[in-house]
Amino acid sequence: MKTQKYYFTTSCCLFFSALFCFSFVAYKKYDDFISEQKRYKKVRQAYQEKEDYLTNKLKQKNLSLQNINILMVAYKDEEELEMYVKAKSDKSYQKFLTYDICRSSGSLGAKNQQGDYQVPEGFYYINHFNPMSSYFLSLGISYPNQADKKRNPTRTTKDLGGAIYLHGSCVTIGCIPITDEWIKEVYVLAVQARANGQTKIPIYVFPFRFTEKNKDTFYPKNQKLVRFWDNIKIGYEKFEKNKQKLSFQIDAKGNYIFD
Results as ranks from 00 to 15, higher is better:
2 K>Y: 11
11 S>Y: 11
12 C>Q: 10
13 C>E: 06
18 A>C: 14
19 L>K: 12
25 V>H: 10
29 K>M: 14
31 D>T: 07
33 F>P: 08
35 S>W: 09
37 Q>W: 05
44 R>S: 13
44 R>H: 06
53 Y>P: 14
58 L>I: 04
64 S>D: 11
67 N>V: 06
67 N>P: 01
69 N>M: 10
70 I>G: 04
71 L>C: 07
73 V>W: 00
82 E>Q: 11
83 M>E: 07
85 V>T: 06
88 K>E: 14
90 D>H: 08
90 D>P: 00
91 K>F: 11
92 S>D: 08
103 R>C: 14
105 S>K: 02
109 G>R: 01
114 Q>D: 15
116 D>K: 03
118 Q>S: 09
118 Q>V: 04
124 Y>P: 02
125 Y>D: 10
130 N>H: 03
135 Y>A: 12
137 L>C: 01
141 I>M: 00
146 Q>A: 09
148 D>M: 02
153 P>I: 03
156 T>Y: 02
156 T>N: 02
158 K>I: 06
159 D>L: 02
166 L>E: 03
170 C>S: 08
177 P>R: 00
179 T>F: 07
182 W>I: 05
185 E>K: 04
194 R>Y: 13
195 A>W: 01
196 N>W: 08
202 P>A: 00
203 I>L: 03
205 V>C: 00
205 V>Y: 00
207 P>S: 01
210 F>R: 00
212 E>Y: 01
212 E>V: 06
220 P>C: 13
222 N>K: 08
223 Q>H: 06
224 K>I: 11
227 R>A: 12
230 D>Q: 14
233 K>N: 09
233 K>W: 06
234 I>G: 04
236 Y>T: 04
237 E>S: 09
238 K>L: 13
238 K>F: 02
241 K>M: 12
243 K>V: 08
247 S>C: 10
251 D>P: 05
254 G>M: 06
257 I>V: 14
258 F>C: 11
